[in-house]
Simulated assay, not measured.
Amino acid sequence: MNSSTSSSKTGGAGMLAGPEWKVLLSLALLLLGTEVVLRLNERRLSVDVDHIRSAPRLAGEITQDAKALPGVLKILFMGNSSIRRGIDAKVLEEEFRVKYGRAVKSYFFYPDGGNIVAWRWAWRRYFAAPGCRPDLVVICGGASHFDDGKLDPRLLASYYVSAEDSWDCAWRQLSGAEERLEFFAAEASLSYASRKRVARRVMDVLMPHNREVLFEMVSQAEKNAAAHTKAPRTQAPTSEALRALLQDLRGKGLKAAIVAVPNLNGYEVPPQRVRTIAEAGAAFIDLRTVPGIDAAHYFDKAHLDAAGAVIFTRALCAALQEAAH
């Protein structure tokens, strides 16, 4: 009887093991399939993803032009949506040609939500190759874009940090085991790194106006929080990521300029940051206020309309002409 009972229990365990393994195998195949589909179609997730993934092509173009266009001033702009909308490339090139008698070719890397953390690591991943030598690297931002801070570990791993820099970034840029685990998981799995973007695309289909509603909700929440939070900042923001990027550029013998872009609300630039820029041998271009640009030239607090972009671009050209010498 004991033998029979034991055999019965063993058989029951074996019957359970079969379905369990089938479930696990199905999940593994589902994850693998998702990974393959995303790797083949990731660029369709958004215009921003396509732009970031085009960075190696952009770096290759700069490398080719360094040899093919020796007399042309080649300017790489790094920033975010504030320059995607705020700099008119045609006006910039025409202004240089007519006003300064110089041929210019501009290149742009401006991921949505880009800040100094993203630009610092993206430079190393995409543009630090020996042959990629723009004549001038112009890094544009406003308000807090140059403050040392954090970026989503999944975005860092998937879009900005190279495999060679992954350990250095994980220990230097991130804090805590959870953030580092997220970072390495996103580095290994595109489906993990992209799950928020995928979720947004699904919601766009199910609820076409959900982004506008969420934007209004977040904006109102921020206004309410600001109204009840009057405590002043007790410590000035630091600029170590900016310092590291400028040191990389200087080490390659490249000229660099930091541009403070206009914002409807205005903002301060810490004196320590200006000193950091000067110590690195870079130019600081203060265009927070540009003559001719007023509130009517903004379609929101941070982005210029087309007319404002023309005015800003022309003002920028005059400053870049000096920085390029």
Rank of each mutant, 00 (worst) to 15 (best):
A170R: 11
D168I: 06
Y159S: 12
E164I: 04
V161N: 07
R180E: 02
E212P: 06
D147G: 06
P130C: 02
S162A: 14
D165F: 03
K150M: 10
A128W: 06
S162E: 00
E164N: 09
L206Q: 03
Q173Y: 05
S194E: 15
R200Y: 05
G149H: 03
R197F: 13
G142P: 00
N210G: 01
S189G: 08
H209E: 13
M217C: 08
A199D: 05
R211G: 04
V213E: 07
S158L: 13
D165C: 04
M203R: 12
E187A: 14
R211N: 06
R172S: 15
S158K: 13
S158G: 05
P134G: 09
H145F: 07
L151T: 10
V213P: 01
M203A: 15
A185H: 03
R154V: 00
V198D: 03
L190W: 08
E182C: 12
D152T: 06
R154T: 07
A177L: 13
Y159E: 12
S175I: 07
R154D: 04
F127R: 07
G176C: 04
R200C: 04
V137K: 03
L190Q: 12
P134L: 07
P134W: 09
L214D: 10
M217D: 13
V202Y: 14
Y160R: 01
C169M: 08
L155I: 12
S175P: 02
A170C: 14
F215R: 15
S158N: 10
V137Q: 00
Y126L: 07
P208T: 08
K196Y: 11
W171E: 11
E178F: 12
E187F: 04
L190E: 09
V138N: 03
A185D: 08
A193G: 06
P130R: 14
L136K: 01
A193F: 02
A177T: 09
R180D: 02
H209W: 11
Y160P: 01
L206S: 11
D165R: 10
E187C: 04
Y192L: 00
K196E: 14
A163F: 08
A129Q: 08
D165T: 02
V161D: 02
S162Y: 05
R172E: 14
